[in-house]
Amino acid sequence: MKRAFPIFAILTAGLLSYGLYGALIQAPTEQTMGDVQRIFYYHVPSAWTAFCLFFVNLVASIVYLVRRSPKVDALALASAEVGVVFCTVVLVTGPIWARPVWGIWWTWDLRLTLTLVLWLIYVSYLMLRRFSSSGQTPVMAAVLAALGALDVPLVYFSIWFFRTQHPQPVIGGGGSIDPRMLHVLLMNWLAFMCFAALVCWSRYRLEILRRQVEETQALESLLAGGSSR
């Protein structure tokens, strides 16, 4: 396992560089939007990666509620943290693209709002993990993740209706995508997924180590207290 980590890291670095090359040079320039469209190769893969990570978090949380294994909880924590980072990338790159193309930074569109609400739910998840007393953190966090998942379809329908009721700027939906663009997009997604897995992996290992250190320290202080008496 220890050998696999650097190999995987090098592979990810290669993929990321190839993805960057694809996004900046290989992919054709979009006709109407111009070069600003290239942010799409970072924006969309980040979004997909973030959603995958939130899904991993949900599965890990449910498994934790059933099995109560601390390792699964460490995975839930790692995926939530990395997911929030990727989701933040989505929320930052989106407006950068929207400003020159739509002429506005933000619109309360279905996907935008859903992403924002998901981000809010997961930030509150991380806050809960940060503030709750250590013994109960995993259970509380897992319950919150499960309730958050219940919330997502409701958010979807509420925003969907909210938006069909009010007019909105037309977004170039539909339409076909150049196969070269699609290739670069999927390449970048693969690179981002590898990167996310890499970061999650090291975060997971860090969390396991941190817990071991905590346990050892608690044990040591117990023993020290026993011997002094």
Binding site: V117, L128, F131, S133
Partner: peptide, 27 residues
């Protein structure tokens, strides 16, 4: 009930409640 188990109790409740309640509040 959840936030009572956390360190900064009073501030934790709105932080947990508001994001989840967004669809209900919108409705």
């Amino acid at each position: 009930a959840m936030s009572i188990r956390t360190r900064s109790r009073e501030i934790m409740l709105p932080l947990l409640l508001f994001p989840i309640t967004i669809p209900a509040l919108l409705a």
